[in-house]
Every structure is written in C-alpha cells, then in structure tokens.
Amino acid sequence: MIFVSAAAVIAVIIASLLAVRSFRPAPLPAPAPWTGPLPEASPPAGMAIFQLPTGTYENRAALAYRGGSFGDVRKFAATAVLVHHPSGDLLIDAGFGANVEAHIATMPAYRRSPHELTSTVHDQLRMKNYDMANLRGVVITHAHWDHVSGLAELDTPIWMNAAESRYVDRAKDAVVFRDVARDHEIHHYTFDGPPYLGFPSSHDVHGDGSVVIVEAGGHTDGSVVVFVTLPDEHRFAFIGDLTWQKEGVTLRAERPKMLQLLADVQPAQVRAGLLNVIAVADRIHVVPAHDVRAYDPIPEWTAGSRTLS
C-alpha cells in the first residue's frame, strides 16, 4: 500500500486549483491611452512592407491567452515581413525553413504540434526574382526556433542586440538559432536612441524614423518590437511574442500563468511591454507574430511590388 500524507494531498489540490485559475479571464488594468503625438518619421517615397507566410502550426486559444477556449484550435502564423526601403531592405523574422521538421524535433515532445510548411522566405524571394543584394539583413524579434528556422537558407546578416546575444549563448530554447546562425555574420546594433512610446530605448535603423527597433525584453533577454511607418502614414508595430494572439491586446489578456513560467524569462517585463502596446493600439496596427489575422492589411510580396495596397 502506498501512503500519501495529508500535506501532499493538500499541495496537489492547491496546485490544481492554481492551474485552473491561471486559464480564467483576468484582464490587465487598462493603461492610459497614448494621447501625445506619435514619434516623428519621414519615410521615403516607395517604402513599403510585404508579408511572406512560410507556414502555420496548431495551438489552442486557451494556451495563448487567459480566457481562451480549449476547443478553439487555431493556426499560428510563421510569417516573415519584408520592409522595402531605398537605403536597403530588411526582413523581420525568418519563419519556417526547409529543415523545420528537424528544428521541431529539438523541442520537448509536449511542445511539438501539427504544422504545415508552405514555402520558405528564400524560395519565395527566389521564385519572384528578388535581388538579394538589396537585403541588408534579418532583424529577429527574438531567437526562438519558429522565428529563425528560415535563416538557414538566407545568406544575409542577422541583426541582434547584446542582451539577445547573451540569451542565445546560454538558453536551451536557442539551440535552433545556434545551429542556423553558425555561418552567418551577426550585425550588432545598440539601443542608442531615446525612449519610444513607453519603451525605454530605441534604435532608428535609417535615421528617418521609418523603422525603429525598441528594447522589449522579457520573453527573451533581448526580445524587441519593430515599429514601421509608411509614407501614407500607416504605422505598424511588429511585437514578436509579447502576446501570441490579438486578444492579448484587444482583451488585455496575458498568457496563462503556467505558460508564462514556461515561455517568458521575465513575465513582468512582458506585461509592461504589452501595456505599452495596448496604450497605442488605437493608432498603430499591432501585429503579434503568430496571429494570422494580424497580417491581413499587409500584401504578399510579388516581383515588382513596391506599395501597400
């Protein structure tokens, strides 16, 4: 006979109750809306953005944000964004690569999910006659596998800040990055600019305010948000994994506590970044990296494309 102490039983009950509670709706307090002017930007004529979907994987809404349904099975995006600028183009993230099966296999079994690979960024650009000489590099929002798998096929610098460099040196979740980035040039950038829409510091890529990277650590040590302003005054915030779905912004819904413990190095920093984004969401189109709906206003790139439709 196996004897179980009353204390152990109580501990299991408490843990179970906490686990259940972590999935219930619990909206964050609404931040004060950003009422000041948006940062100045002078994007050049012809600047534009395009989405390059590389595939999807399945996940349940309940695991993405508090209050989501376990019965709501969603397709999570693995999409790169091409930012065309006369001074040189950039990709934001790289999506799935040709070796995505092997990359998924590096994850613990409980984190693997059904997925679909469409076409890699490299193949999409090559098939549509993109001149790779125009590509200055890939800005990664962070170094997790589903954002960097496609780097393996791209012979272009990877843009990374110091905090994320430290993260990839030590983190188990950066094993795929370390593999695909082995032969790449790393372009180290610093946050040499002022605070930006509540974030502590920034880096203005072109010096014209059109592409600004801000420090938004918390999901990983050096995770970032990339703000893009177009000539027609459309503004976008590519927020990586501050939240996995739009409901993180529209419902002010964080990840369930259990998922925060698994996914985030500093959940409090993620919360602060998410609140910054919520405060400007009525004036800037927010794109969580894995929400397929968020990419709807962004056209797919085709040969000769140069403007946002």
Rank of each mutant, 00 (worst) to 15 (best):
M1Q: 12
I2F: 12
F3K: 14
S5W: 07
S5G: 15
A6E: 15
I10D: 11
A15L: 14
L17V: 13
L17E: 08
L18R: 14
A19L: 15
S22H: 04
A26W: 09
A26L: 11
P27V: 04
L28N: 04
P29A: 10
L38N: 00
A41Q: 03
S42C: 09
P44H: 05
M47T: 08
F50V: 01
Q51D: 05
T54W: 05
E58S: 13
R60G: 01
A64D: 10
R66K: 15
G68R: 02
S69Y: 03
F70D: 12
G71P: 02
R74F: 06
K75L: 12
F76C: 11
A77I: 04
A78E: 08
V83K: 01
I92K: 01
G95C: 08
V100Q: 06
A102S: 14
I104V: 14
I104K: 07
A105F: 07
A105T: 10
P108Y: 07
A109V: 13
V121M: 02
H122N: 10
D123R: 15
M127S: 15
M127T: 14
K128L: 09
Y130R: 05
Y130H: 11
M132I: 09
N134Q: 13
L135Q: 00
R136G: 06
G137Q: 00
G137L: 00
V139S: 03
A143I: 02
V148P: 01
L151V: 03
L151Q: 00
L154Q: 01
D155H: 12
I158Q: 01
A163C: 09
E164D: 04
E164Q: 08
E164A: 04
R178G: 03
R182P: 02
E185G: 05
E185C: 09
I186R: 08
G193H: 07
P195L: 10
G198E: 00
F199I: 07
P200M: 06
P200G: 07
P200H: 05
P200A: 14
V205P: 03
H206M: 09
G207A: 12
G207N: 06
I213L: 04
G218N: 05
T220F: 04
V228R: 00
T229L: 00
D232E: 12
E233Y: 05
F238W: 02
D241S: 10
Q245R: 13
K246P: 06
E247W: 03
T250C: 03
E254D: 13
R255G: 03
K257A: 11
K257R: 12
A263W: 10
D264N: 14
V265E: 05
Q266C: 08
G273T: 01
L274N: 04
N276S: 11
V277C: 09
I278W: 00
V280I: 15
I284H: 03
V286C: 03
V286A: 02
H290C: 09
H290T: 14
D291F: 01
R293Y: 06
P299T: 07
T302Y: 09
A303Y: 08
A303F: 08
T307F: 06
S309N: 12
